[in-house]
């Protein structure tokens, strides 16, 4: 069966417009300043206002121990974005390095890297993420690493094929003959050509990373309550769905959707700007 080239979700069809850039800006703002501008302490309980429906005092209502859902949803932005960004940067860095090594060196290096990548892709990705997060125990890092490992193939493959393709090109040969070292050639002369493609892939990947991380914490893996995190908030809120307190799961869920849309649109917008031959 080799390594069938399925996997990447075909991306959002909504054309990346300026709206997504503004929205990403808003999310970044909330990630930086969110915890300081929210009206209530996101972890402070207040039993006098338990399970209140949305009102002007509590825009998104309150939860079962009287915490303000709005404050918790906003405060969670920083953690969710940092996890997604961390995971994407990690897989971008390691994936690019592995791919560049495999594409440049060829031979056994290439064989080992390619085999590893194929093996990762032999798993249903979320299943592997669950396994890694479970193995690594309860910490933010386990979610970050689980999310980044399953994304490694994306970056490693792109970089490998691009480096491999340019390895024999004229300007690389010239650089080699003039005695420039391998590392310098790859880093200075080959990778810059791949940067636009990788940048677009990474930005489109952030939305996916947000979903993956939220899915893991929804299951109770990695991050533990009472830390505000969107997946956990939805999971906590789900328990009150049967008694009709919908606001606890709807608002954090909607925030997730909005974040995924924003970063998906941003990726499309970036691709249209950089247009690296439709990576």
């Amino acid at each position: 069966m080799g390594a069938p080239a399925r996997r990447r979700w075909p991306r959002l069809r909504i054309r990346g417009g300026a709206w997504s850039v503004w929205l990403v800006g808003l999310f970044v703002f909330l990630a930086v300043f969110g915890p300081t501008i929210v009206p209530y302490d996101p972890v402070a309980t207040n039993t006098r206002v338990r399970l209140e429906a949305p009102s002007w005092a509590h825009l998104f209502g309150t939860d079962d121990v009287g915490r303000d859902v709005f404050s918790r949803v906003i405060a969670a932005t920083r953690l969710d974005l940092m996890i997604a960004l961390g995971a994407v940067l990690l897989s971008l860095g390691i994936g690019t390095a592995l791919g560049a090594a495999a594409g440049w060196a060829g031979g056994w290096t290439d064989r080992i890297v390619s085999r590893t990548i194929d093996t990762i892709m032999g798993f249903p990705l979320f299943v592997l993420a669950v396994g890694i997060a479970a193995g690594m125990g309860n910490s933010v890092w386990s979610v970050v690493i689980a999310t980044s490992v399953v994304n490694l193939p994306l970056y490693a493959r792109t970089t490998r094929s691009e480096v491999n393709r340019r390895r024999t090109s004229g300007y690389v040969q010239a650089a080699r003959l003039s005695g420039i070292g391998s590392f310098t050639i790859v880093a200075r002369h080959i990778l810059p050509n791949v940067t636009p493609i990788l940048a677009v892939q990474a930005s489109l990947n952030i939305g996916w990373a947000i979903l993956n991380a939220a899915g893991l914490s929804f299951l109770g893996l990695g991050i533990r309550p009472p830390t505000p995190e969107w997946g956990i908030l939805v999971s906590d809120g789900a328990e009150f769905l049967f008694s009709g307190e919908w606001w606890m799961f709807v608002f954090p869920g909607a925030m997730l959707v909005l974040a995924v849309l924003a970063f998906g649109g941003f990726g499309d917008w970036l691709r249209d700007r950089l247009d690296p031959k439709r990576a």
């Binding site: 959002l12 069809r13 899915g215 789900a238 869920g253 959707v257 995924v260």
Partner: peptide, 19 residues
């Protein structure tokens, strides 16, 4: 259908359908 499928987390869609 496709746009919803890409942006809405699985668990959230399940909860909305239940609700």
């Amino acid at each position: 259908v496709s746009a919803v499928g890409q942006a809405v987390p699985t668990f959230f869609l399940g909860l909305i359908l239940i609700f």
